[in-house]
């Protein structure tokens, strides 16, 4: 009886999505880890420059973007929950809502870049802004890739492709949550500390 329970527990422990996506996620997390550590080390070497640089950023924009990505991730999690229960139309609605919040992130980020460009700040201004633009723009590109994946999942869900196997849905959702996870670290590092 106990053996049966143990075997059942082992079988229940399934990795969401597919293994290839998880290796891709690990690779992405590693690249960003190098960025995060580089940023912190460079800040310790140039405290005055980083303090002045951070003062020119827009913390409210960073906060709005944090809330937008967390909420977008929340709706993707709800969409996956709905598809597990066979609620296809509900899942599509949550996915579209998630993408609306992702668009909000893109708009706020572009506004922030534009406002910095308007006062003459660019990638070449100093080491702080070089790192700021490199890290945030690299993350921005990941958001766009995530949105492409979410759009594909939305289309497939609408077409009823995830009736028996939701592995593709889970893989795409995991990627989107990774984008959120990275911002959770990036936000305090650049805007709060």
């Amino acid at each position: 009886m106990n053996n049966a329970i143990e075997i059942s527990t082992l079988e229940d422990k399934k990795l969401p999505g597919d293994l290839a996506m998880w290796f891709f996620i690990l690779a992405e997390l590693t690249v960003f880890a190098i960025f995060f550590i580089s940023f912190a080390v460079t800040e310790q070497l140039n405290p005055e420059m980083f303090s002045q640089g951070k003062a020119q950023l827009h913390p409210v924009a960073g906060l709005i973007n944090t809330l937008a990505l967390i909420t977008s991730s929340f709706f993707v999690a709800l969409a996956l929950n709905a598809i597990h229960q066979g609620k296809r139309k509900v899942s599509v609605s949550w996915l579209i809502t998630a993408q609306a919040f992702a668009i909000l992130y893109l708009i706020v980020k572009m506004w922030e870049y534009q406002s910095l460009f308007n006062v003459g700040i660019s990638l070449e201004t100093n080491t702080f802004f070089t790192l700021y633009f490199l890290i945030t723009a690299f993350h921005f590109l990941h958001v766009i890739l995530g949105m492409i994946i979410l759009s594909y999942i939305t289309f497939r869900t609408y077409k009823g492709a995830y009736r028996s196997n939701v592995s593709g849905f889970e893989a795409g959702a995991s990627y989107w949550h990774m984008v959120d996870l990275l911002w959770i670290i990036l936000f305090p590092l650049i805007y709060v500390i």
């Binding site: 229940d12 399934k14 959702a173």
Partner: peptide, 22 residues
């Protein structure tokens, strides 16, 4: 950051019920 990350990993990524290694 750690608590938020743990929430995302366990609940949103659904890794709470995934193999322990992952």
């Amino acid at each position: 950051v750690f608590i938020k990350g743990q929430q995302i990993v366990d609940t949103f990524m659904e890794l709470k019920t995934a193999p322990t290694f992952w």
